[in-house]
Every structure is written in structure tokens, then in C-alpha cells.
Design a protein around this nucleic acid. Structure first.
Length: 883
DNA sequence: CGATCCCGCCACATT
DNA sequence: AATGTGGCGGGATCG
């Protein structure tokens, strides 16, 4: 085997440890050749070579479809093949060149495969494999930096853990299921609810993500990190974004119904507050990182590349092919649950180990698992970091509170200002920007986009498919099940169909259900729960309960980790405590979404289609688009890039974009709208456009109750999550109009409402057409981190109340949620979305139309029609109450 | 030309 | 200060 195909060898370089300049000249074959030759071949080296060589080849082959998975077991097997290939290929010099380490050969994905090939997927529990970064780097012939990329991702999934300085401990996939479960739970908690509920789109998801992201993400991260790597926690902030991003990214998949996530969307979601910076460049950077992560995940056989075709075009996306939900959390683990089918390939082995694992320990509580899981590291790091914890924790409750708070505060301040200013004008638009910036920013998908956005949003398509899908998925989760099951069963869909003209599906969407989402529970606290349950038909009480439990649990779990930190985040959550409030507060965001579009679980149909990726994919795409293109109105023409940039950078074309951060505020201030306010979010991606009727003043609040019902529908369309954050003011008038807006109009909506009245307390409302919003942000005034937005679906009642009543301090939150629920349900049929829906739809449609916004609207309309339908729009209201 | 993403500078963290 | 980590984004490749 002499063949050391130089080329290949080169990369490999047995030689040495990092020292070897890996390849500064990758290209030049000569050098390559030289290097390799000189080196003595060690067995390892050969292996390396082989592997490296093979990998590419293999990869190519497989590439066609799936990625790899090949290697795992077999280093050996690969080798042979590799050799052969090499031999053949290499035979000639030319070939060398060819093969020369093309980019592909150097790809992170390939590198990761090589890396993984070195270790058993399911190592014996007893043995512990330590990984030396330097060693691996040298073996694989890459710079250490690259290894970090791989290891960080693996660490996020707990496949490895850092033991010490250059040392990592290989755990293998034993815990993978657990980890994924945990992530799923975490994701659900944070975003999940929405997601679940919302079938449609990911918009929701996105929103949620965005919104919540901050908090939750952080939390999650913390949690994980703590357990695993404490360092993270200890580390400061910066912490390994890659790790965090990886977890978040995975969470997106796990929470996603479709299991398909486009890069755009993911990037948006992941962009955290970043506020200021938000520009396009940031987005690009995020995308780059996602590619890195995706490559590793692909190598792990957890995802695969796919393309989502949208109207506009196809977007790159990734589909989760790893184990899918672990529906039941608890039980599954044990047996082997099948968590799923893991990978298509052979991997099955995994299962076995899995089982074992499960048996072994921790599985009980998922939470526990986390915490328990990593021994080594946790210990180490934690120790270090811990100290401060108490302190932090406290705040933690607030969670990130600092950040949050600050943000909130800022927002509030901004809002106020705006309001004031606006007041002058009258309309008060709030400014989304702030929020957006901070948190949510990322997301806002705006409907407005000329191009995509709306339509996507609207989701025309989705409706049917989506729902079904959702349902299907949802069930898996206990919460979901509960909720959905009971409530919505059929109604929605059918009803929907009826109602709407053409789109039945839409209806479903539109209709909202009240779910007792986990969050709800939380929010409601004990009180709520009951109500909820009652309201909802819930099929199974148990279900509900479970739901609750879950809800409660998860957080706890997350937090659980021994670490204090965890506590922080989770703290509120803990079931134990009565402090429902706290929880609520903290999570407020999350839970909020009370109302959800219904989904008929049961409908078989839906199930059947569940995954239809297409649909979902589409949706996603749409979302993406939105995000991406948020550009919207303004930039429509411009290139995408530019557009994007604009978005990010410019908030509004019209408006000057101030500086980054502040800008948003400024924007808010701006009086723009004569009639409507258009707000673009600065923050990154999200660009939202809001149109608010200027007319109404904040006073609108009045609407409240009475309007509620009606309102819900009409007014606002808020696409992005971002919106959520913003406080909106509705104009009463608008609402009233429920009427007619042409559907076509798009999602965009008009929002309206609210008066935040002042803002003082301001409760921010969010209205999402589709989505929802989670208003985490909302707290305009108060800003508590906690506050939660409640997603009220309906907003109406809630809103009204909240608005009116809203008091920041008061625990309104709790109340709100409840209210909401009631509202919907009140009708006996919660479901009856039908009746409602129609109205809403119209309203929505009309609204926009009526609103007519400027450019944005136009664009939107043109592009799509959002369909009203689509999403149901939910309004969410967040009341922020604060404190 | 857009999608990917390698490469390695450089800042920050840890030792 | 040295070394470990890893954010980040320019710009090369790929398709």
C-alpha cells in the first residue's frame, strides 16, 4: 500500500502534530507529496490516510443521498475501500492534483467523520476514552482550530465532554437520546408550545424562538453547559456560541414539526439579540456557523441537507433524520425506546446501547439525566464557576434578568418615548425595533415583504398540510397532546374549511384554541390549570395533567442541574414551588401562548401527512423568506443581499436608521405614520413591518373588552415574533372594522391596538397574524423579564383586560392568561373557531387592506396573500405587566 | 452567481 | 506571558 497517495496523505500528514503546517499550500501537490513521503508510516498514519482518502470518496458516493454514517464502525472497512480508491485514483499525478485536497476533502464534515470514526459510537460504559485535541489534530492532519469546531458541537450533544485542557472525554452516543430529549423538552418549553400548536408555520416557531430565545436559550444553554461544561457558565458570556448554537439548532429540529429547518430561519432565530449589530453581515456569519454545525450534525447522521422549495426559490435547509421525538419522555427511554429511528442506516446499534444506558442511570428524569450525566466535567467546571451563583441565581430568577431586564427596560423606555412622541402624533407606534433588537429581533418575519414574506406567512399552502402535520407531531408531546387533543379536535379543521372560502385549512389555523400549554400551566399556576382543563375539553384529564407536569418538569429539569445557575433559570419553574407566579414571570413568555390555533389532532388526515415535509418545508421557506426578505417594502428591488442588509441596518427606508441599537428606538419614535405606522425592525433579520393605524390612539385600549372578540381578528397582523415584543397600540377604530379586509391583503397586518396606554404599564400586545407572538418582550414598560407575554390568543379579552387593567406589577400575568382561556372557551366550544374565524379572517384581510400601507403592503399583497388564512392570526397580547 | 465553508487572524480565557 | 479556545469573517470553491 505504498500508495500513500501523496495528495491524500498530505492532508493527513501523519506527521505531526500541529506542527506541521498543515497545509499552507494545500494546493501544491508537490509539497504535499513530499511531506508524506518522508514520514514514516505508522499504522495510524496509514489509517489516517486511508480514512481521509476514503472519506471523500465515500462521501461522494453517499453524498447522493444521505450522508454518512458510514464510518462509524468501521474504521477498518473504510480503510480498505479507501485504499483501493486511492490507489486507483492516485495512480497518476494528475490525479493528485485532482484529488488534491479539494475543498471537499478538507471539509469539516469529512473531518468530523474521520474524527468519529476513531471512536466507537457506543463505547463500553466502563471505558473512558480520552481525546487529546492535539493528537487528533495531528492525526487528522488539521489544525486544532478545526477540531474545536467539531468538539464543540459534539459537546453540545454530550457526545464528548471536556475534561481538561486539551482533553476531552468520549462518551459516544449512549446519551444522545437523552440529550436530544432534553433538548426537545427544553425547546418545547421555550418555544415549543407554540410550535406545537402552531402547525403552520414555523413562523410561530420562529417567533417564539426569537422571543424566547433569549431567555430560554440562555437557560438552556446554561443548563447544558453547566452540566457538561461548566466552563461555559463560568466562562463568560461569550461562551461558546457554537455550542449553544448547536443546541439551539438541534432544538429547532426537534421542535419543528416538519423537522426541516432552513438555514435562514435558523440563523434568524439564532441571532440573538445582537441587536445592534444586526446587520446582514451578522446574518452571514451566523449562517456560516450553522454550516459548520450542520456539517458535524450531518456527520453524526442527525440531519441531512435538503432544499426547501418555495415560491421564490429553493432554499438550503436541513432535515432531521436522527431520532425523532421521544414522544414520551419518560418511558421511552427505558426500553429502547425507539426513540426513534435513529438513523436510517445501520445505526441501530445505537439503540442497544441506548437501552443499556437508560437502564443504567439517570434516565428517570430527564432532568436528572442531564445533571447527572456528565460527571467529570460538570464537576470541574462547575466548581469554578459556581461561586457567584447565588447571587446570580437570584437574578436568575429573573433570569437573564439582567439582560432581560435591561432590555425590557430599554424597550419600555423606548416605547414610552415613542408613545409620547407618538402621542403627539397620535398613533403611537411602538417600536418594535427595540424589542426586535434585543431579542426577537431576529425574527420577525415580516409579512410585508414584497416578495416572499407575505405569502409565506400566509402560508397559503400550509394550511392543510400543516395542520395535520402538526397535529401529528404534537401528540407526541404530552402537552401537546393534551391540549390539542382535547380541544381541537376536529373542529378546527372542518370548521375552517367551511368557513373560509376556499381554504378550509385556513380556518383551522385561524381558529384558535386554547391550549393549556405547558406554559399556560405555568402561567396560570394552579388556578389556571383548572380552568384550562375545564375549558378545554380535554379528553384526558390525565393528559392535562401530564401536560402540566411536563411543563413544570421540564423547566425544572433544565434547571435542575445541580448547578445553581440552573436554578436560576429554572428556578421559577420548579414545580415544587408554589410560586407559580415566578414561573410565570420568568417564563412568562413561553407560556403565554394560550391560544393556539386549533389543530385537530385527531384528524387522521392530518396525521397522515404529518411530515409532509413539503408543506412544512415550504412554510419554512416562507418564513425564511420573510425573514430574509424582510426587506420588504423598501428594498424590494434590491438584491437580496442588499435587502437584507437594509433590513438589518436600515430599519426603514424611510426612516433613517440610526445607529444600531438605538436606532430602533428612534424608529419607534418617528412619527411616521400618518395613518399607519410602519415599523421596521431593525434588528436583524427581522424586519417587520407593522402597520398601525395611526388613527387610533392608544386610547384604544378601550377596545378592550368589548372588542375583544372582534378584535382579535382584525387588527393586527404581526408577523414576526419581533412584533411580539413590541407593544402595539391598537386603534379601536381599526378593530371595529373588523370587517372586511380582503383576504389577499396579507398578513401584514394591521395592527392595532392597543393602547398601551400608556404605556405605562404598557402592555405590549402582540398580534400576530399568524403567529404569535410571544411577547416576551413586551414588557415595555416594566420590563420585567418576566413578563410575559401572554399570548393571548384572542387577545381580546385579555387584551382588554390587560390593557386596561394592566398593571405592570400586578401579577396580571396570571390573570391574563386565564382570562384568555376563558375567553376562548367560553364559548362552549372553544373550538368554534369557525364563527370566530371568519370574522377574524376578514378582519385581517380587511385590515390590511384598509390599512393599506405603503409600500410594504403593496408588496406583500402582491406577493402573496398571506393568507389570511394562514395563519390564523393570533393575537397575542402580552401584557407586560410587570413587575 | 449564489451557496458553502476553509482558513487562520486575533481576542479572550486559562494556565 | 504562554498557551488554549474559539469568534469571526475574508475570500476561495463549489455547483
Amino acid at each position: 500500500m505504498a500508495p500513500k497517495s501523496p495528495i491524500k496523505n498530505e492532508p493527513v500528514d501523519l506527521s505531526k502534530q500541529k506542527g506541521c503546517t498543515p497545509e499552507r499550500n494545500p494546493i501544491t501537490p508537490v509539497k504535499l507529496i513530499d511531506r508524506p513521503q518522508p514520514d514514516p508510516w505508522t499504522p495510524t498514519a496509514n489509517l489516517k490516510m486511508l480514512v481521509s482518502a476514503a472519506s471523500p470518496d465515500m462521501r461522494d458516493r453517499e453524498k447522493k443521498k444521505e450522508l454518512f454514517r458510514p464510518i462509524e464502525n468501521s474504521e477498518q472497512s473504510d480503510t480498505p475501500d479507501a485504499l483501493q480508491y486511492d490507489m486507483v485514483d492516485d495512480s497518476t499525478v494528475d490525479e493528485f492534483e485532482k484529488q488534491r485536497p479539494s475543498r471537499k476533502q478538507k471539509s469539516l464534515g469529512l473531518l468530523c467523520q474521520k474524527f468519529l470514526a476513531r471512536y466507537p459510537s457506543y463505547p463500553l460504559s466502563t471505558e473512558k476514552t480520552t481525546i487529546s485535541l492535539d493528537e487528533v489534530a495531528s492525526i487528522l492532519g488539521v489544525e486544532r482550530r478545526r477540531i474545536y469546531d467539531i468538539v464543540n458541537v459534539l459537546e453540545s450533544l454530550q457526545l464528548v465532554s471536556r475534561v481538561a485542557k486539551n482533553q476531552y472525554c468520549w462518551h459516544g452516543r449512549h446519551n444522545l437520546g437523552q440529550t436530544l430529549k432534553t433538548l426537545q423538552e427544553a425547546g418545547e418549553l421555550q418555544y415549543g408550545e407554540l410550535m406545537t400548536f402552531f402547525q403552520h408555520k414555523e413562523q410561530d416557531l420562529e417567533y417564539r424562538f426569537v422571543e424566547r430565545k433569549k431567555d430560554s436559550q440562555d437557560r438552556l444553554l446554561l443548563d447544558f453547559s453547566e452540566p457538561d461544561c461548566t466552563s461555559a457558565s463560568a466562562n463568560s458570556r461569550k461562551d461558546k456560541s457554537l455550542r449553544i448554537m448547536s443546541q439551539k439548532f438541534v432544538m429547532l429540529f426537534l421542535v419543528s414539526k416538519t423537522k426541516i429547518v432552513t438555514l435562514d430561519v435558523a440563523a434568524k432565530i439564532l441571532i440573538e439579540e445582537t441587536q445592534e449589530t444586526v446587520d446582514y453581515s451578522k446574518f452571514k456569519t451566523k449562517v456560516r456557523r450553522l454550516y459548520d454545525i450542520a456539517n458535524v450534525l450531518t456527520s453524526l447522521g442527525l440531519i441531512k441537507k435538503v432544499h426547501v422549495t418555495e415560491e421564490r426559490g429553493r432554499k438550503p435547509a436541513f432535515k432531521w433524520i436522527g431520532p425523532v421525538e421521544f414522544p414520551v419522555k419518560t418511558d421511552e427511554p427505558r426500553g429502547h425506546s425507539p426513540i426513534s429511528d435513529p438513523l436510517p442506516g445501520t445505526q441501530k446499534g445505537a439503540c442497544a446501547p441506548y437501552q443499556i444506558y437508560a437502564t443504567g442511570k439517570q434516565r428517570f428524569t430527564r432532568h436528572a439525566s442531564f445533571s447527572g450525566a456528565q460527571p467529570c466535567e460538570g464537576a470541574r467546571r462547575k466548581v469554578s464557576s459556581e461561586p457567584s451563583s447565588p447571587h446570580q441565581e437570584r437574578q436568575a430568577c429573573t433570569v437573564n434578568s439582567d439582560d432581560y431586564c435591561s432590555k425590557m427596560i430599554n424597550l419600555a423606555a423606548v416605547c414610552r418615548q415613542k408613545i409620547e412622541e407618538d402621542s403627539g402624533n397620535e398613533a403611537c407606534a411602538t417600536k418594535p425595533t427595540l424589542n426586535s433588537i434585543r431579542n426577537p429581533s431576529t425574527t420577525s418575519p415580516l409579512p410585508l415583504h414584497p416578495v416572499l414574506g407575505d405569502s409565506d406567512f400566509c402560508v397559503n399552502p400550509l394550511p392543510q398540510a400543516v395542520f395535520p402535520v402538526v397535529q401529528a407531531d404534537v401528540p407526541s408531546l404530552s402537552l401537546a397532546d393534551e391540549v390539542s387533543g382535547p380541544q381541537a379536535p376536529h373542529p378546527s379543521t372542518p370548521a375552517a374549511s367551511k368557513t373560509e372560502n376556499g381554504k378550509p385549512t385556513l380556518l383551522p389555523n385561524q381558529s384558535f384554541l386554547c391550549f393549556p400549554s405547558s406554559s399556560l400551566f405555568m402561567l396560570c399556576g394552579s388556578l389556571q390549570e383548572n380552568n384550562l382543563c375545564e375549558t378545554l375539553p380535554t379528553p384526558g384529564d390525565a393528559g392535562n395533567r401530564s401536560g402540566k407536569a411536563q411543563a413544570a418538569v421540564p423547566p425544572a429539569a433544565c434547571q435542575k442541574r445541580s448547578s445553581h445557575k440552573c436554578a436560576l433559570s429554572s428556578a421559577p419553574v420548579d414545580d415544587e414551588e408554589p410560586a407559580a407566579k415566578k414561573q410565570t414571570m420568568e417564563q412568562s413568555d413561553v407560556p403565554l401562548a394560550l391560544v393556539v390555533p386549533k389543530k385537530p389532532f385527531e384528524s387522521p388526515v392530518a396525521e397522515s401527512t404529518p411530515r409532509s415535509g413539503c408543506t412544512s418545508a415550504v412554510h419554512l421557506g416562507a418564513f425564511h423568506l420573510d425573514f430574509a426578505s424582510p426587506v420588504a417594502p423598501e428594498a424590494a428591488d434590491k438584491e437580496s443581499t442588499q435587502e437584507q442588509e437594509k433590513w438589518f441596518q436600515n430599519k426603514n427606508p424611510d426612516e433613517p436608521s440610526p445607529g444600531k441599537e438605538h436606532i430602533s428606538q428612534e424608529n419607534a419614535h418617528q412619527p411616521f405614520l400618518p395613518q399607519y405606522l410602519y415599523v421596521q425592525p431593525t434588528a436583524g433579520l427581522s424586519s417587520f413591518n407593522f402597520l398601525l393605524p395611526a388613527n387610533q390612539a392608544p386610547g384604544a385600549v378601550s377596545l378592550a373588552a368589548s372588542q375583544l372578540p372582534s378584535l382579535s381578528v382584525p387588527c393586527v397582523m404581526v408577523p414576526s415574533a419581533a412584533l411580539a415584543s413590541f407593544p402595539l397600540v391598537c386603534s379601536p377604530t381599526v378593530t371595529s372594522p373588523l370587517s372586511p379586509v380582503p383576504d389577499g391583503s396579507f398578513s401584514a397586518a394591521a395592527s392595532v391596538n392597543f393602547s398601551m396606554s400608556g404605556l405605562a404599564s404598557t402592555t405590549p400586545l402582540f398580534i400576530g397574524t399568524t403567529a404569535v407572538v410571544t411577547p416576551k418582550v413586551s414588557p415595555a414598560s416594566a420590563v420585567d423579564p418576566q413578563q410575559p407575554a401572554h399570548p393571548a390568543l384572542h387577545l381580546s379579552p385579555v387584551l382588554a383586560r390587560s390593557c386596561g387593567a394592566v398593571k405592570p406589577d400586578s401579577p396580571a400575568c396570571m390573570g391574563h392568561p386565564v382570562t384568555l382561556l376563558k375567553l376562548q372557551q367560553p364559548s362552549s366550544a372553544p373550538l368554534t373557531p369557525k364563527s370566530i374565524r371568519p370574522a377574524r379572517h376578514e378582519a385581517f384581510f380587511k385590515t390590511p387592506g384598509s390599512l393599506g400601507n405603503p409600500v410594504a403592503w403593496k408588496k406583500n399583497e402582491g406577493s402573496q396573500t398571506r393568507n389570511t388564512s394562514s395563519v390564523q392570526r393570533r393575537l397575542e397580547i402580552s401584557s407586560t405587566s410587570p413587575d
